[in-house]
């Protein structure tokens, strides 16, 4: 039996599963943590700066950032682009709810990539050049109405991508199998989308006086 079970299994399966896993652990978890910590902005500049500086002062910061954020996100994004442009979206012919979610997952992935790239450049890369990432930096960025729109679209797209990705993550690993469990999962992940949207929109407006 052993000889029969060990067969040449291609690389696709492992890479897809890795892509799926990394979307939730660690990238998705980091996203939730990031949005929640930033929500301290609603308590004013001082409370935000305290939370941000606590995150900055974590030990092994660069190692943590590299292995929890940069590498997993880079892999997920690069392979995600490959997946996204492989699909032949067909919502005009098949306008079903899940097919729309399929297309939006790909569109939001691309928007998220553009947003995150800009956001990292504007904050973390500037910090490496010596800038101080704090409340007034964000206040400055968001004093421009164009940037407010950019941040709203970018953050909501990211939150959608994560919440809907959570739904398909549960399918990809075989956690939600029956139609009923998948329907319940739709409502639960919709709840995640709404909750994280409220958290992030409140944060953005906290920087606007």
């Amino acid at each position: 039996m052993k000889g029969a079970t060990i067969m040449a299994v291609g690389r696709d399966f492992a890479i897809r599963r890795l892509h799926s896993l990394l979307g939730v652990i660690p990238v998705g978890l980091f996203l939730v943590q990031h949005l929640v910590v930033n929500h301290f902005a609603t308590g004013g500049a001082e409370s935000f700066n305290k939370a941000a500086h606590f995150m900055e002062s974590l030990p092994f910061r660069l190692v943590l950032e590299t292995f929890v954020i940069y590498l997993p996100l880079l892999f997920h994004a690069v392979y995600g682009l490959y997946i996204a442009f492989q699909a032949k979206n067909n919502t005009t012919r098949y306008g079903y709810f899940r097919n729309w979610m399929f297309t939006l997952q790909r569109v939001s992935g691309v928007i998220t990539l553009i947003f995150v790239a800009w956001h990292v450049w504007e904050t973390r890369v500037q910090a490496a050049f010596g800038a101080d990432v704090n409340f007034s930096m964000m206040e400055d960025i968001l004093s421009n109405p164009f940037m407010v729109a950019f941040y709203l679209i970018g953050v909501l797209s990211t939150v959608f991508h994560f919440a809907n990705g959570l739904w398909s993550f549960f399918v990809s690993w075989g956690l939600t199998v029956s139609p009923r469990s998948q329907r319940i999962s739709t409502y639960v992940t919709l709840g995640v989308f709404i909750a994280l949207s409220i958290v992030s929109v409140r944060t953005i407006f906290a920087f606007i006086q």
Binding site: T5, M7, A8, V9, G10, R11, D12, F13, R16, R17, I83, A87, N90, Y94, Y96, R98, N99, M101, F102, T103, Q105, W167, S168, V171, S172
Partner: peptide, 17 residues
């Protein structure tokens, strides 16, 4: 194992069409 090969199951993107 056959559907875990390239072009197999993992290519599903859950459009459910």
């Amino acid at each position: 194992n056959a559907i875990m090969d390239d072009g197999g199951l993992a290519n599903c993107g859950n459009s459910q069409n």
